[in-house]
């Protein structure tokens, strides 16, 4: 069956239209293709970048794990040191408490001693006064003693003079010749007493 001329023209017209629209569609698909190619390349690049980043982070994580292990061991050491320090601290604290008590006591003693010192100082002052007085007395007494000694010396000389005079008297014939009289006198005097 042969198509009518108008039908053929219409078909041809439609084919022309569709041919052009097909070309438009091809351009659109080329855009999509080019876009997808770019997207795919971008995705690949992003994936590679993400992997590189992940690898870098894995390296960092490995490094951090190592650092963490070292820090853990340091931590353990420090914890031990902390324990030791704590014990020392406790001991020190207790010593400190004891010291505090001692200090308090010493302070109290110091206060008492201070008071004693004050008392003693006062006594010393009194004693000093007494001493001064005594020194004055001593001086006076020494002076008196000196005077007394002088007096004694003078008197001793007088005694000695007198003794000598006595002995001289007693050595005299008169004294010896009167002995008898004195013995009678003593006898008599004795009876009297």
């Amino acid at each position: 069956m042969k198509s009518a001329p108008s039908e053929t023209a219409e078909t041809l017209h439609r084919v022309r239209q569709q041919l052009i629209l097909a070309q438009v569609r091809i351009m659109e698909l080329e855009d999509v293709r080019d876009g997808l190619t770019g997207t795919s390349e971008n995705t690949d690049r992003l994936l590679a970048a993400a992997q590189r980043l992940a690898d870098q982070k894995l390296d960092e994580a490995g490094h951090l794990a190592k650092v963490s292990a070292e820090l853990q061991s340091q931590f353990e050491y420090l914890r031990h040191m902390q324990h030791v320090t704590n014990e020392a601290l406790t001991l020190t604290r207790s010593q400190l408490e004891t010291s505090d008590l001692n200090r308090t006591r010493l302070q109290q003693n110091a206060v008492a001693l201070s008071e004693q010192i004050t008392g003693l100082s006062e006594q010393i002052a009194k004693l000093d006064e007494q001493s001064a007085r005594l020194n004055e007395q001593i001086s006076r007494l020494t002076l008196e003693l000196t005077e007394s000694k002088t007096t004694a010396t003078i008197r001793l000389e007088r005694i000695n003079q007198l003794d000598a005079e006595i002995r001289a008297i007693k050595a005299t014939r008169s004294w010896r010749w009167t002995a008898w009289l004195r013995s009678i006198g003593r006898i008599l005097g004795g009876r009297k007493s």
Binding site: A9, E10, H13, R16, Q17, I20, L21, V24
Partner: peptide, 9 residues
């Protein structure tokens, strides 16, 4: 018949 309509591009 003398116009090829493409619609919106």
């Amino acid at each position: 018949p003398h116009v090829i309509e493409l619609g919106p591009i």
